[in-house]
Structures are given as structure tokens and as C-alpha cells.
Design a binder for these strands. Structure first.
Lengths: 104, 104
DNA sequence: CACAGTATCTTGTTATGCAAGGTACTAAAC
DNA sequence: GTTTAGTACCTTGCATAACAAGATACTGTG
């Protein structure tokens, strides 16, 4: 999988997942991994960035299956960021596909 | 325009443009710029990479409107790379859009 | 002669994905 | 009871690629 393609889009995917439910990091890795190969070393620094930017808040929750889980909850500004990014992505891939679709 | 989104895709766009006609750098910048903002500082290093990888060959041609133009011609391996990248992109954006399309 | 347009290029900065590694808890297997 | 696998967190250092800014040089117009 071309890792360059993922640049910037993983942020959108994570924000999108969090619009549905609060999730913990390991869970996010697994959800995205079903479709797009992704590693923990990518997600954890990304979550830290999202928190630093105020897009998410966190809370800990005990687990019976391992160490405590750190759940991420989408803040209001995170919802706005999600909508903004989504629109940018829609515009972007539409333009790319138009360029790629022109007669050869 | 989110510059992260462009990572890796500009290579595909350039290769695609060259499947139609040989082009010079400035011309490529202008063609892509019609749809996606792009700067010369991005394209010239990219062209150098493509040549270094053997995907394109170059030749100079005089111009009456300015300095000589360096034309880029797609090599056979460049055509293969184009097809490979195109398939990767198609798969990738399809998966992203499926993830983004799931019920909120 | 200055300036806009055409055309090439380089340097240094920035962003972000990833491999590799470390820590720690639970439960099953040996 | 100790090893192993699965869950779950984290960090460091590397590689890649887009971009701002600036340098160079040719042509034609005001």
C-alpha cells in the first residue's frame, strides 16, 4: 500500500470513525486496518496531535482483557474539522479523477 | 488546498499527462494548476525523481518565447508505473470512500 | 531600460506515515 | 510457575514529498 496516498486522509478517517462512537486507539487501528493497512506507530502520534489541537478529549476506562483503554471523544471543534476535511477530500478526489479521466 | 492529500498522487497525475503527449515542466505545472494548486518547486524535483527512476527520458527544444524547454517523454517502465499507480489509487480511494460512507 | 511572461533549477522547512522497539496487563497452555 | 499470545498503551528515528522562497536567464513590450 502506497503510504504517501494516506497522508492527511487518516486524520479524516479517524475523525469520521469518532463521529459514530467514542473509540480507543487500538480499536481505531483495527477498524481502519480492515480496509487500509495501518500501524499503531501511525495512530498513536496522530491521536496525540488531535488532542493537542483540541479536536478530541480523552478518558480512561478499565478493561477485563488487558490494560486500561484510553477512549477518544470528538469535541465540537473536531466535528467542524471533520466537516471541513471531508469537503476538502471530496473536492480533491473529484478533481483528481477528472484529470485522470480525460481522453488518453 | 491540503498539501498532504497530494502526496504520491502528483506522480500519478504527471505520468498520466505524459501518456498523452511529451510535455515540458512549466507546461505540466500549468495543466495541473487548472484543477489543483501546485508550485514549480514541487514539479521540478518530482521530474528529477522520475528521470532518476528511469520512468521518463528528456530532450531539449528551443522556444521563441523564452529559454529552451526540457521535454519529458514517458519510457516503457513509466507506462508500467503509471498503470500500477493508477490501480493503487483506484483501490485506495474506493476503500476510503467506503469507510467514509458508512452510516453515521 | 525596466518589466512581465516564459522557463529552468535549488535550498531548507514542514508534515506525516512507519518500522522498530519498549512497557504492562490478562488468560490459556505447558 | 513460567512461557506464550492477545490486548493495549507509548516513543524514537527514518524516509518521503510538497512547498515557500529565491536564483538564473531568455524574449518581447512599454
Amino acid at each position: 500500500m502506497n503510504s504517501q496516498f494516506k497522508k492527511g486522509i487518516l486524520e479524516l478517517l479517524v475523525l469520521h470513525i469518532l463521529t459514530k462512537n467514542d473509540c480507543y486507539g487500538y480499536e481505531i487501528v483495527n477498524k481502519i486496518s480492515e480496509s487500509i493497512s495501518i500501524s499503531e506507530g501511525t495512530i498513536y502520534p496522530l491521536m496525540r496531535r488531535l488532542k493537542g489541537d483540541g479536536y478530541v478529549t480523552t478518558y480512561l476506562s478499565e478493561s477485563t482483557e488487558g490494560p486500561p483503554r484510553k477512549y477518544y471523544h470528538l469535541a465540537d471543534s473536531g466535528i467542524e474539522e471533520h466537516n471541513r476535511l471531508k469537503e476538502e477530500w471530496d473536492t480533491f478526489f473529484e478533481r483528481v479523477n477528472i484529470l485522470l479521466g480525460e481522453e488518453a
